[in-house]
Design a binder for these strands. Structure first.
Lengths: 195, 195
DNA sequence: CCCAGATGTCCGGGCTCTTGACATCTGGGC
DNA sequence: GCCCAGATGTCAAGAGCCCGGACATCTGGG
């Protein structure tokens, strides 16, 4: 289960994703070269295909890994407050701040609609959305005991979509948006609170 | 040349040696179990044999790696002084101090003659001796420009054997031995000095 | 129009880890 | 003294994965 072979496999995937990440940050999806990813990792081009299927698979895997890392931070912000609304506000602000600085996000959204990678946050955003929803939902259901699970899910869904929208199409500053979300969802949560 | 496969191979060897090192430190050569080395690394027993040949090969490789690390420190001590004699004194003291604290040395020499690993420093000390000689000699010929190469080699050989003897069979304190070596070899070097 | 470069696919070859089996030796218990 | 458990060392078959080369296809630029 934790054999050397398994660890090697994980390491290979991870290093390939490191190479892909750098390439995408440097030149976007179009600038990504399958041969480069392999060469930088010291592996043949075929191995890249074996691991990810095709070029789109490389992008997806890269974004998934980045999203996972992203969510760890956001969840930490959520957990730093006992009151759900405070946690929500902190998480929203954290997410927006981090997104604004994230090299991968910047590369994908460099010029509006120019890079195909941006589709992973828009027309093909299903995966990122579901992944984020799952991680946040699990976290919230555990840390918001006084909020009915279904209502917590609703909150996460709304906040998540608002945040994603602001990442793709920035509006007000992070703190302002965070406050806005908190003010909008606060009454809902208060009304639904079981205790 | 630096392919992922190559790195993986080096990593495997290194992790196997880590496991062997710990096992030897914990139970000496007799307490070393080929199956354990494999299991701790997450690899089959056969793989251990493929890498090292036999149990004695595992011990040898472990000692060689440790010796290499050891010599890096000793060479640094040598290089820290411009005067050959000062360097020699520092190196001898450094070597003796480190040897006294070294877990592998302590495991090998735990009870006099009890563990077969001790043979690598005594009756079968050829390898360690040659390896050390080679590393130190190369270093000395480069950093002692005013000493004829052959005389530098002689110095290294004498000092090395004295040090090894003191490691196996401790006499005076490191600083004392270092001073002794310096006093004995000083006149020789002065007489032979070309400048 | 053509070609260079990139994607995606296929396959044979080779290396290495795995698994299971087996022979041999040794030390301890009965 | 005998036997067995445990350890070393060897062998072969099997599987997985990376490599290297070849090939078809598509696209953008000269």
């Amino acid at each position: 289960m934790d054999s050397f072979t398994d660890r090697t496999k994980r390491r290979l995937r991870d290093e390939l994703l490191d190479a892909a990440y750098e390439a995408i940050v440097a030149g976007g999806y179009d600038g990504l070269r399958m041969a480069d990813v392999g060469r930088r990792t010291g592996v043949s081009r075929q191995t890249v295909y074996n691991e990810f299927g095709d070029k789109w698979g490389v992008l997806q895997a890269t974004v998934v890994r980045e999203t996972e890392r992203f969510l760890v931070e956001v969840n930490d912000a959520l957990a730093a407050h006992t009151d759900p609304i405070d946690g929500l506000r902190a998480a929203v602000e954290c997410a927006l701040r981090m997104a604004a600085d994230n090299p991968l996000v910047k590369a994908a959204l460099g010029q509006p609609g120019s890079d195909q990678a941006s589709q992973l946050l828009t027309t093909r955003g299903q995966q990122v959305l579901e992944l984020s929803h799952q991680r946040l939902d699990a976290h919230v259901r555990e840390h918001w005991p006084e909020v009915p699970a279904e209502d917590a899910t609703t909150c996460v869904d709304v906040a998540l979509r608002v945040v994603l929208s602001h990442i793709v199409n920035p509006g007000a500053a992070p703190a302002v948006v965070a406050d806005q979300v908190a003010r909008v969802l606060g009454p809902f949560l208060s009304a639904r609170r079981s205790t």
